[in-house]
């Protein structure tokens, strides 16, 4: 009985920790498929968390908070897009600057608004929705189908984005922009516009992921609460081979790696918990170091376009 409870808790934690990663990684998948790597994802997540927190506080509605978090994430991605796509600056440098800037600005805004005393904010939280029938499945039901609505957004976006990427002419144009922008342009695709929209969409989902952290996951905001999730999400995209379905699976896998500590503690294993905290990051390195096998990254990823003469 105890083991069953621990198992359910482990699954629930895996999903809970996996959902923000999945949201950010799904957005980044679309961005990267268009040929743009947005290392500034972390900045969009932390902005989404703060935007969500402020929005929820102001309106008293967690749902509105999630929307405002998405807008905040998109605004940060807009800064990235204006520089990296509009001006053709180096995407890695620009993204890093956006991440550091995002962390700094959100910290400053938070302190200006709530002071430095650090009494934890108490925010309205997103209610869980229990899916009829499915949530009654033994063992799996409550961890997977008694969750905040953002979780169901992930379940829905996986197949929707897959269809959009591979079965619509918009998806085809977006992938062409990421594989061979010159060829795409010759075929009449407006490469820069496609890339800008893709980057904004990535920022939107990263913002929602941040708002989820504040409003569904913890119920509070803290400086640096994104805790490197933007970077892990980029690794998740690689592990999921730039495919929306696999990206969701990979995100849940990373969630499970983070949740492992709860399971193992429940079993009373005497291993320092810091080791488990490090596990997702070790997996990140492993994924990037070639677990993924032959690279299938979009051919024009991270290359500014049009090339300067």
């Amino acid at each position: 009985m105890f083991e069953a409870l621990a198992w359910v808790a482990f699954l629930e934690a895996s999903v809970r920790l996996g959902v923000p990663l999945a949201l950010a990684a799904l957005g980044e998948t679309i961005t990267e498929r268009s040929g743009v790597i947005n290392i500034g994802l972390e900045g969009s997540i932390i902005a989404g968390a703060l935007g969500g927190a402020l929005g929820a506080l102001a309106t008293g509605s967690a749902g509105t908070g999630i929307l405002l978090g998405g807008v905040a994430g998109m605004a940060v991605a807009g800064v990235f897009a204006a520089l990296a796509i509009g001006l053709g600056t180096d995407q890695i440098i620009t993204g890093t600057a956006v991440t550091l800037g995002g962390l700094g600005v959100t910290g400053a805004v938070y302190q200006a608004r709530f002071g430095v005393t650090g009494t934890a904010l108490s925010l309205p939280t997103l209610d869980r929705w229990s899916v009829p029938v499915l949530s009654d499945i033994p063992m799996l039901g409550s961890p997977l189908f008694d969750q905040p609505p953002t979780t169901y957004l992930v379940y829905a976006l996986g197949p929707i984005l897959w269809y959009w990427l591979f079965r619509t002419s918009w998806g085809l144009e977006l992938r062409a922009a990421g594989e061979a922008p010159d060829a795409a342009r010759a075929a009449g695709v407006r490469v820069l516009k496609v890339r800008a929209v893709a980057a904004l969409f990535g920022g939107l989902l990263a913002g929602v992921a941040g708002a989820h952290l504040a409003l569904a996951h913890t119920g509070t905001f803290a400086e640096n609460m994104s805790a490197g999730r933007g970077f892990i999400a980029i690794a998740v995209v690689v592990l999921g081979r730039w495919h929306p379905g696999w990206v969701v699976v990979a995100a849940m896998f990373f969630g499970a790696a983070s949740a492992l500590q709860f399971l193992l503690q429940a079993f009373g294993l005497d291993v320092p918990y810091q080791l488990f905290l490090a596990l997702p990051y070790v997996l990140t390195l492993a994924a990037l170091a070639g677990w993924v096998g032959r690279a299938t990254a979009p051919a024009a990823l991270a290359l500014p376009w049009p090339r300067r003469r």
Binding site: A176, E179, A180, A299
Partner: peptide, 8 residues
Amino acid sequence: HFALVPTF
């Protein structure tokens, strides 16, 4: 110079 997407 062919304006084709090689992976497509």
